[in-house]
Nucleic acid binder design. Structure first.
Length: 632
RNA sequence: GACCUCGUAGCUCAGCUGGAUAGAGCAACUGCCUUCUAAGCAGUAGGUCACAGGUUCGAAUCCUGUCGGGGUCGCCA
C-alpha cells in the first residue's frame, strides 16, 4: 500500500469516527506548493454531514488524524482545505528502501496481460518523413510504457506493400529508370524508389495538364460511355456552380477523371491487375523494389531505435476478412444489397451505413482490417490491441471497433486507436507537392550534426575516444528530436519548429541527459577518491532539507506516473515528469553540497538520493527511447 | 451541410476524472562559475484560459450556443 492509499484510509476512518459514516470515496490532492503540507483534503462535500463550517470540519478531521494516523505529523487549515503534513521519517524510509532498487519504475499494472502495439505501418513507395517519425516514436515509446507496466508486448508493423501507389514507382522505374539500383547510384533504397514515385507524379502532371484545361473548358472527348456520362455530369454541375469551394471541388473531380484516363494511369492500373494475377515479371520487379525499400527502412528504424516483433504485409492480409463477412451475413450483422455489395448499418450508433465488401466480391480497406484483427488475436492471444494511426482515420477505427463488437468478438473491448495529431511546420502543413516534406533521415542527420557542433563549442569532452564521441552526438541529437516530439500530448496536433527542436536548453532531452551526466560525474568522484563504495553503506539521514524532501517526493511519484502514462498511452506524461524531476534535482544540486558535505551521514544520504534520481531519469528517458550518457 | 477535434503568456506547450493566487520552456531584462559539469540555478516582466450563457459552495476543467483553426463524410488506403 502506498502513502496516498494509507492516508485515504486514515481519513476515511477519521470521518467515520467523527460523523458516523463516510458518504463518498475520499479524494486526495497534492498540496499546492504555496501552502504548507504534503497532501490536501477538500472538506466542502462533507459539510452536509458535519453540519458545521468548513474550517471547523477540516480542523476536526485534522485533529483526529494527528492523534490516530501514525504517518501524519501535522496539519493546517485554509478555508475548506485541510493540508496534511507527513512525518519526514517516511521520506527517509522510502529513500533507504528504494534508492538502490534496480527495478524501481517497473509496475504490476499489466501483470498477466498481453498487448499488441501496431505502429509505423509505412507505404513502400516513399521514404519516411516527419509524420512517420512521430508515429514511430510514439509506437515505440507506448510499447515501452506497457512493458514497464508489466504487460507482455508484441510490437507489430503492418506494411502497406501493395496497391496503385506502389505500382506508380514500379512503372516509372521501368520506363525511366535505366536499370538504376541502390548500388549503382549509392542511394538508400527507399529514397531511390521514392525518387521514381516523384518522377511518375511529375510525368503524369505534365502529360495531363493540357487535357485538364481542355476538359474544364468542356472540350474533352473521353473514351468510353461511363466516363463520358461522368464527365458530362461534372461539366453540367460546373456550369451551375457559384461557390468557389464547390467549383474547386468539381475541378478536382475533373482532374481525377482525366488522370485516371491517361495512358500512364492505365498502364499503372494494368500493372496492378498483373500483380494480382501473379505475372512473374511484375512480381519480380515488385519484390526487387520492395527489397530496396525494406533495407532503407531498416537503416532508418535502426537509427531511430525502433523495432518490431511481428511484420504483417498487406500483400498477405488484403485477402483476409471475406470469410468474416460471410459470418456477419449469417449472424445478420451485415446485409447484402441487390448489386451484391455487403453493408453494415451503423445509423443506430450515430454513424452511417458502411460498405464492407464490394459488389464484385473484392475487399475494401475495412474488410482486411476485420480479418487482420482476428488474425492478431488468434496468433498472439493478446488482451489488448493498440493501433497507432493518425487522427484522420478516427472514423475508420470507430467503425472497425463497432463491427468487431457486433460480430461478438470478446476482444473488441480491448481494441484502441491511439489517434495522434498531425505534425505541422511553421510554414503550415507538410505538402509533398510543394516540397515541404521533412525527410526522416535528413532530420536525424541534422539533429546529430547540431549536437556535435554544440558539444564541440562547449568543449567538455576531453579524453573521450572517437567512437564514444560519435555515440554521444548520436545520443544527444536523437534525444533532442525524440523529446521534442514526445513531450507533446499525442492526441494533439503539434508544431515542429526546426529551430526550436535543436535548442538544447530548457524543456529538452539534452537537459534531462545533462542532469543524469552531472550525477554520474559526482558518483564517479565519490567512488574514485579513495572512498570506494563505502557511501552505499550506512543509514540515511532523517533530518532532511525541504528541497531533499521535495526531490524524494518527486521520485516517490514515479511509478504512478508510469501507470498513468500507460493507461493514457501518453509518453508525454513521462517526458513532463522527467523535466520535473531534473529541475527539482538541479535545484537540490544548487542548494545542497554533496561531495563537500563534511557530515558523512548527510553526504552519503545525498549520494544515495543522487543515485536514485539518476536511476529514475535513466528509466524515464529509456521509456522515451532515449539513451543516457555518462558525460557530456 | 453533417459529424469529430482543438483554441491557455509574443512563441511552443503543461494543467482538463471540477478545488486555493492558472504553471514551465523559448524570446526580453537582472543576478550567480578561484568550490561536485553554467547544456545549470535564482529573480523581473508577461494572462479577459477564444467569446457568451448555464450547472455548482467553487469552472481553464462539465453542459449549451457563437466565432476561429484542423480533420472526416470514396465500391481510396
Amino acid at each position: 500500500m502506498n502513502l496516498e492509499q494509507a492516508l485515504i484510509q486514515h481519513i476515511s476512518e477519521a470521518i467515520t469516527a467523527l460523523y458516523g459514516s463516510n458518504p463518498q470515496p475520499v479524494k486526495l490532492e497534492r498540496t499546492n506548493p504555496d501552502f504548507d503540507g504534503d497532501y490536501t483534503f477538500v472538506v466542502f462535500p462533507l459539510l452536509r454531514i458535519s453540519r458545521s463550517t468548513p474550517e471547523a470540519t477540516a480542523t476536526a478531521i485534522g485533529e483526529q488524524l494527528k492523534q490516530h494516523a501514525p504517518i501524519v505529523s501535522d496539519f493546517n487549515v485554509v478555508k475548506g482545505f485541510l493540508n496534511i503534513v507527513l512525518k519526514t521519517d517516511i521520506y527517509a524510509d522510502f529513500l533507504k528502501a528504494q534508492w538502490d532498487n534496480a527495478s524501481f519504475g517497473q509496475t504490476t499494472l499489466g501483470e498477466d496481460k498481453k498487448v499488441m502495439v501496431e505502429y509505423s505501418s509505412p507505404n513502400t513507395n516513399k521514404p519516411l518523413h516527419l509524420g512517420h517519425v512521430r508515429n514511430n516514436l510514439l509506437g515505440m515509446s507506448v510499447a515501452n510504457l506497457y512493458k514497464a507496466a508489466g504487460y507482455q508486448v508484441v510490437m507489430a508493423n503492418l506494411i502497406n506493400d501493395r496497391g496503385i501507389h506502389i505500382c506508380k514507382s514500379m512503372l516509372a522505374w521501368q520506363k525511366f529508370g535505366n536499370g538504376e539500383t541502390p548500388e549503382s547510384t549509392g542511394m538508400k533504397g527507399d529514397h531511390l524508389v521514392g525518387k521514381y514515385y516523384v518522377v511518375f507524379e511529375n510525368a503524369l502532371r505534365e502529360k495531363t495538364l493540357p487535357i485538364i484545361e481542355e476538359a474544364i473548358d468542356g472540350k474533352w472527348t473521353p473514351e468510353g460511355d461511363i466516363v463520358k456520362t461522368k464527365y458530362q455530369a461534372i461539366i453540367a454541375q460546373l456550369q451551375q456552380a457559384s461557390e468557389d469551394k464547390q467549383i474547386a471541388k468539381l475541378k478536382d473531380d475533373l482532374k481525377e477523371l482525366v488522370r485516371n484516363q491517361s495512358p500512364l494511369m492505365r498502364e499503372t492500373q494494368q500493372m496492378l491487375r498483373d500483380w494480382e494475377a501473379g505475372i512473374p515479371e511484375v512480381i519480380d520487379l515488385w519484390k526487387t523494389m520492395n527489397g530496396w525499400v525494406y533495407s532503407g527502412f531498416e537503416k532508418t528504424y535502426a537509427r531511430l531505435g525502433v523495432s518490431f516483433d511481428q511484420y504483417y504485409y498487406e500483400s498477405d492480409t488484403y485477402k483476409l476478412g471475406k470469410d468474416v463477412v460471410d459470418e456477419g451475413l449469417q449472424k445478420g450483422v451485415f446485409y447484402r444489397k441487390d448489386d451484391g455489395s455487403v453493408w453494415i448499418d451503423l445509423r443506430g450508433d450515430g454513424l452511417d451505413e458502411k460498405l464492407v465488401l464490394r459488389g464484385d466480391g473484392t475487399s475494401v480497406y475495412i474488410t482486411q482490417d476485420i480479418g487482420t484483427a482476428d488474425l492478431k488475436f488468434q496468433q498472439h492471444g493478446v488482451d489488448q490491441s493498440i493501433y497507432v494511426v493518425g487522427n484522420e482515420q478516427d472514423y475508420h477505427f470507430k467503425v472497425l471497433f463497432l463491427i468487431m463488437k457486433k460480430l461478438g468478438r470478446p476482444f473488441a473491448e480491448g481494441m484502441h486507436h491511439l489517434s495522434y495529431g498531425m505534425v505541422d511546420l511553421p510554414s503550415g502543413k507538410m505538402k509533398s507537392r510543394e516540397g515541404t516534406v521533412v525527410d526522416a533521415d535528413d532530420l536525424v542527420q541534422e539533429m546529430v550534426e547540431e549536437a556535435k557542433a554544440k558539444t564541440q563549442e562547449l568543449g567538455k569532452t576531453d579524453g573521450l575516444e572517437e567512437t564514444e564521441l560519435l555515440n554521444l552526438y548520436e545520443s544527444l541529437g536523437l534525444s533532442a528530436l525524440k523529446f521534442f516530439i514526445l513531450k507533446v500530448d499525442p492526441r494533439k496536433r503539434m508544431l515542429f519548429n526546426p529551430q526550436e527542436s535543436i535548442d538544447f536548453q530548457g524543456d529538452t532531452g539534452p537537459f534531462v541527459q545533462y542532469t543524469y551526466a552531472r550525477i554520474q560525474s559526482i558518483l564517479r568522484s565519490a567512488s574514485s577518491d579513495g572512498q570506494d563504495q563505502s557511501w552505499k553503506q550506512g543509514d540515511v539521514n532523517t533530518e532532511l532539507q525541504p528541497i531533499e524532501i521535495e526531490t524524494i517526493q518527486t521520485l516517490y511519484r514515479y511509478p504512478e506516473e508510469v501507470n498513468k502514462a500507460c493507461n493514457d498511452s501518453s509518453p508525454a506524461v513521462i517526458a513532463q515528469y522527467c523535466i520535473d524531476l531534473a529541475r527539482t534535482f538541479n535545484r537540490f544540486y544548487n542548494e545542497c553540497h554533496i561531495m563537500r558535505e563534511s557530515d558523512p551521514v548527510i553526504k552519503n544520504t545525498r549520494l544515495k538520493l543522487a543515485h536514485f534520481t539518476a536511476h529514475t531519469l535513466k528509466h524515464g528517458l529509456n521509456l522515451l527511447g532515449i539513451q543516457v550518457v555518462g558525460r557530456m
